[in-house]
Amino acid sequence: MVSSITEIKETSNHQKWDARFIKDKIFTGLIILFSLITISPIVLIISKLISKGYKQINLSFFTETTPNTYQAMLANEAGNTIPGGILNGITGTILMVFLASLMAIPIGVLIGIYLYENGTKRYAKIVKDITDILQGVPSIVLGLISYFWVVKFITNGFSALAGSFALFIMMLPLIIRSTEETFKMIPVSIKEAGFALGVPYHKIIFRILIPSGLSGLITGILLATSRVIGETAPLMLTALGSMAVNLNIEKPTSAIPLLIWEFYNDPNMVDLIWASSLLLMMLVLGINLISKMIISKRNL
C-alpha cells in the first residue's frame, strides 16, 4: 500500500516535471523569437541604409548644398553620383537643435529641480501632469502652434527660430522628467551632508546635486536631442526649408529630415534620400551610444 502511494507520487512528479520542462522550452523559444523580431528592424534598417546610401557619401556630401533637379537628372543619366550635398540641411539641423537646446536645457533643468524639491506640493503635481501631457502632444500640433505664435507674430515668415521653438517644446518635457529622475537617484543623505556643514540651499543644488547628477543630466539632454533631431513634421510648418546655407534665425532654413522629405518628392534625387537617412540614422545612433556609455560609466 505504502509503496504504491510513493510510486504514484513519483510518476506524477515525473509527469509534472516533464510538462514544466516542455513549457519552459516553449516559452524560451517564444522569447527568443520575439526578441529577434524586436532586434531585426534596426539591423534591416541600418544594412539597407548603408547599402543604398554609401555611394553618395563623399566629401561634397558634407561641404556642398543640394543640387537642383536638372543637375541630378544629368548625373543619373550619365550613371554618376549626384553632385552636391546636404550642407544646408546639416547646418540647419545644427542651428535649430542648438537653439532649441539653448532654450530647453536651462528651463528644463530648473523645472526638473523644482519638481524634485517640491514633488508633493499641489502646484508641482499639476506641473508634473502637464509635463506628461506635453510629452504626448503630436509633433505636428507643436509645429502648428509654433506657426501661429512665432511664424505669424515674431519672425513674420518661416524661420529657423520658429522651427527651433517647436523643437524646444518637444525637448522640454523630456529634459524635465530626466532631470527629476536623475536627482531622485541621488541619496538624500548626500544633501543632508551638505546641510550638516551649514551650506546654503542654493549652493547644495549647484555645487553638490548638479555635479553629482551631471552624467544623468547630460544623458537626458542627449536623449532629448536625439529625439528631436529627426523631427520633420513641425519643421515643415515652421522652418520650411532652404536651398542655401542659412544661419539667420529669422529666415527659412533647411534641416536633414526636411531634405529627405524634399528628395522623396523628386524622382531624380532618390540616391540622396538614402544617403541623408543614413547620416541622420548615424547621428541618432551615435548620440544614443554616447548616452549609453555615460550611463554604464555612472553605474560602475
Binding site: 543632508e192 551632508a193 551638505g194
Partner: peptide, 12 residues
C-alpha cells in the same frame, strides 16, 4: 559637526 548612518562623501 554631524556624521550620518551611511557614509555619504560627496560623490563629485
Amino acid at each position: 559637526g554631524m556624521v550620518f548612518q551611511r557614509p555619504n562623501p560627496f560623490p563629485n
